[in-house]
């Protein structure tokens, strides 16, 4: 088969057909999808940043009402600090380990924040505080945008990886974009994301 194909290539007619069909394939698909992945990744980072920016205000507001929830608040502050300290390498999209690390830190902040919101339910004054309500809705909105951004990112990576692994794209990439690699994507949302958080009604500590 392949030999056949090579001998045919010497025939100018087949060469022309081959060139035309190659041109008909989307030669720019790989860089285009690559850009899409980068764009949707920056949206993900953007939303995480937005969430991190909300945290200090939220902590300050909750602190005013729920002074005895020191541990929960401390957890949020620590997780936020960890997220802030993390250096995001430029090549995070080529680096599954860095992405995993990023995921872990953000996941820790997610669970600390959801604990905080659960705890906040116990304080009627806090729950009716306008500032808290505004922050809570902003946080919810940000979490939702985050979910959308992550879904978009996963879809973009899937398109990109599919292009690299399926037939015309695979050939095109090996000839024209040999540096293109499969990209890592998110694994699960958070650890134990499928389990609802346990709320303990009995203890007050």
């Amino acid at each position: 088969m392949i030999f056949d194909f090579v001998t045919r290539l010497k025939n100018p007619f087949f060469l022309l057909v081959f060139a035309v069909s190659l041109a008909a394939c989307d030669v720019n698909a790989v860089p285009r999808l690559d850009e899409q992945v980068s764009a949707s990744w920056s949206q993900v980072e953007n939303q995480y940043q937005r969430r991190a920016d909300l945290v200090p205000n939220l902590v300050a507001t909750v602190q005013g009402f729920a002074t005895q929830e020191r541990e929960v608040l401390q957890n949020v502050v620590e997780a936020r600090a960890k997220v802030g300290q993390m250096q995001i390498p430029d090549n995070i999209l080529q680096n599954p380990d860095a992405l995993k690390m990023f995921e872990q830190n953000q996941g820790a902040l997610s669970s600390a924040l959801s604990r905080l919101l659960v705890v906040a339910e116990r304080y009627p004054d806090l729950k009716s505080n306008q500032n808290f309500l505004a922050l809570q809705s902003q946080l919810e909105g940000t979490e939702n945008r985050l979910a959308v951004a992550r879904r978009d990112y996963i879809a973009a990576v899937r398109d990109y990886n599919t292009e690299l692994r399926t037939i015309p794209g695979k050939w095109i990439a090996s000839v024209m974009y040999p540096e293109a690699e499969l990209k890592p994507t998110f694994t699960a949302t958070v650890e134990n994301a499928d389990q609802a958080p346990k709320v303990n009604f009995s203890s007050g500590s």
């Binding site: 309500l133 505004a134 809570q136 902003q138 940000t142």
Partner: peptide, 8 residues
Amino acid sequence: LTDAQASV
């Protein structure tokens, strides 16, 4: 129309 306003 911010999240907070939508929530209100």
